[in-house]
């Protein structure tokens, strides 16, 4: 059976969608990604949609689901490389892609995910500092 490959890159999972997904394939991707996040402790998911020519409400919902599910598993999702025509169509259709981070290309998407991890680490360090203060 056909599958969309999920690549692991350090703390992140990378998915490049190269074909127009039919529904079953999109649903499988959703399930595969969430289980991969859990299996690999990934901190971020990057989805490249630069070859996708159509995002309808179904596909939009799948992207939203992936972001929400990953967030519950403590990973952020960035959708990158959306074609201008697709972005215009999504907005006119009334699909705002809530809760999904976006970036112009893979490079910027990676930067965004890295900055999110750094922020989290800083927060944790601060918390640790607070802990040591209180024990003194």
């Amino acid at each position: 059976m056909e599958k969309i490959p999920i690549l692991r890159m350090g703390h992140f999972l990378l998915v490049t969608i190269q074909v127009d997904l039919y529904d079953q394939l999109a649903e499988n991707l959703e399930a595969d990604l969430v289980s991969m996040v859990s299996k690999t402790n990934a901190k971020g998911v990057l989805i490249d949609v630069s070859s996708v020519s159509i995002i309808d409400s179904f596909m939009g919902r799948i992207l939203g689901n992936i972001a929400t599910m990953s967030k519950i598993m403590d990973a952020d999702t960035v959708v990158v490389g959306m074609q201008p025509a697709v972005a215009i169509t999504l907005v006119e259709l009334g699909l705002p892609l809530k809760g999904v981070y976006t970036a112009l290309n893979v490079e910027r998407g990676m930067e965004l995910l890295r900055s999110k991890i750094l922020l989290e680490e800083e927060d944790q360090e601060e918390e640790n500092d607070d802990d040591t203060d209180s024990t003194e």
Binding site: S53, I54, S57, P84, A85, V86, I88, T89
Partner: peptide, 17 residues
């Protein structure tokens, strides 16, 4: 045009669903 194509096909996809 590509934009109108995208709008048409997206709309068609919604209706066919």
């Amino acid at each position: 045009s590509l934009l109108n194509q995208t709008k048409l096909i997206t709309g068609a996809s919604e209706l066919v669903r």
